[in-house]
C-alpha cells in the first residue's frame, strides 16, 4: 500500500504542478510584460521605498487580497534597474515573483520611466512557478532526509546504549512483567517474556511523556526485536503494524510543541488543549489498534507464503 501512496504523491504532485503552470500561463497570472506603476520615494541617493495602493494591485492582478490599503517595500536603484526587497507582509504574488526570480526575497525590476515620484517598472518574467518549486523540493527534501537521519545518530547511540544496559541487567524484563496483562492482549503473537515487549513499553512510555528524542531510538530497538520474530523477511508482521498504529496515533500526556507554539503566540491559556488532544489521540490510538486487528484478517493483507524468500531485486544487496 505504501507503493500506491508513493506513486500517488509523486504523480499527483507533478500533474498538479504542470496543470497549475499551464493555467497560470494561459491566464497570464503574473502579468508578464505588463508595466506596473508605483511611487518611489528616495531616502538617500540610492535607497528608498516603493509603494502602491492595494486597489491598484488588486486591479492589476485581478485578485482580492487581504492586506493594508497601501503596500510598501524597501527598494534601491541601480542604474536602470530597481531592487525591491519583499518581506513577510508583501502581497502573495510579489512573494512568488521574488522566489521564482532568484530564490530569494529580492525582485529586480527594469525601470521603464520615471516622472517625479511616479515610476513605471517591468517585473521579471515569471513562469513555471510550481514546476520550479517541485524541482527545489526534490533537492531540498532529499537533503533534509539525510540531515534528519544523521541528526539521529547521537541520540540514537545514547538510547541504544541505555537500552542495552537495561537488557543486560534484566530491567526490561521487570518492566515487561508489570504491563504483561495488557501487552499480551494487544500483541498476542509475541511471547510475553520476549525483550520486544519491554522495548515497546519503553517506547510508549517515552511517547506518553512527550520525549520524542528518546521514543524513536526505543521504538527502533523494539522493531529490531519484533523483526527477530519475523519469519517472512521484508514483510511487516501483525505485531509491527499494531505497534506502529499506536505510534502514529501519538498519544501523549503533554503535547509540548503545540503548547509552546500557543504560548509563543500569546494565548491566554496555552495548555487548554491538554485535555482535548489527549481525547483526540486517545480515540486515534483505540481506532488504530482496532483497525490493525480487523485489517490483518482481510485476505488482501494476509502474508503471502509465495513471496517468502524472494525479495525484489532492488533489495538483493541487503
Amino acid at each position: 500500500m505504501l507503493n500506491y501512496v508513493w506513486i500517488g504523491l509523486v504523480l499527483i504532485g507533478v500533474l498538479a504542478a504542470a496543470s497549475t503552470d499551464i493555467y497560470d500561463a494561459s491566464t497570464n497570472r503574473y502579468r508578464n510584460g505588463q508595466p506596473f506603476e508605483l511611487q518611489y520615494n528616495s531616502t538617500t541617493a540610492m535607497n528608498g521605498t516603493v509603494s502602491y495602493s492595494r486597489e491598484y494591485y488588486d486591479k492589476f492582478y485581478g485578485v482580492d487580497v487581504d492586506s493594508p490599503d497601501t503596500i510598501s517595500c524597501r527598494a534601491d536603484l541601480t542604474g536602470s534597474f530597481i531592487n525591491i526587497y519583499t518581506d513577510n507582509d508583501s502581497p502573495k504574488i510579489w512573494k512568488i515573483v521574488a522566489k521564482t526570480d532568484d530564490n530569494s526575497k529580492l525582485i529586480t525590476a527594469k525601470v521603464l520611466s520615471q516622472h517625479g515620484n511616479m515610476m513605471t517598472i517591468l517585473l521579471p518574467t515569471t513562469s513555471l512557478v510550481k514546476t520550479k518549486a517541485v524541482l527545489d523540493a526534490v533537492i531540498s527534501y532529499s537533503e533534509l532526509a539525510v540531515k534528519i537521519a544523521l541528526g539521529l545518530i547521537g541520540v540514537m547511540a545514547f538510547w541504544l546504549g541505555i537500552m542495552k544496559l537495561a537488557e543486560d541487567s534484566g530491567m526490561i524484563k521487570i518492566i515487561a512483567r508489570v504491563l504483561k496483562p495488557v501487552m499480551v492482549r494487544i500483541f498476542p503473537d509475541i511471547p510475553p517474556d520476549h525483550p520486544a515487549i519491554g522495548a515497546m513499553i519503553m517506547n510508549m512510555a517515552a511517547n506518553m511523556l512527550g520525549l520524542n528524542n528518546a521514543a524513536t531510538p526505543l521504538g527502533l530497538k523494539a522493531m529490531e526485536h519484533l523483526e527477530s520474530l519475523n519469519t517472512h523477511k521484508g514483510t511487516a508482521t501483525n505485531a509491527m503494524i499494531t505497534f506502529l498504529a499506536i505510534n502514529t496515533a501519538g498519544l501523549t500526556l503533554i503535547p509540548a510543541t503545540a503548547i509552546a507554539v500557543r504560548a509563543a503566540l500569546g494565548s491566554k491559556d496555552p495548555t487548554i488543549i491538554l485535555m482535548t488532544s489527549f481525547f483526540g489521540a486517545g480515540l486515534a490510538t483505540i481506532a488504530g489498534i482496532a483497525a490493525a486487528k480487523i485489517l490483518q484478517r482481510l485476505k488482501i493483507y494476509r502474508i503471502d507464503d509465495k513471496l517468502d524468500g524472494n525479495p525484489p531485486e532492488s533489495e538483493g544487496s541487503n
Binding site: M1, L2, L220, M223, E224, L226, E227, N230, K233, G234, T235, A236, M240, I241, L244, A245, A291, A292, L295, Q296, L298, Y301, I303, L307, P311, P312, E315, N318
Partner: peptide, 10 residues
Amino acid sequence: AVNIYRTRHA
C-alpha cells in the same frame, strides 16, 4: 530500520 518494504495494512 528493519528493511521492511511489504507494509501490508500498516
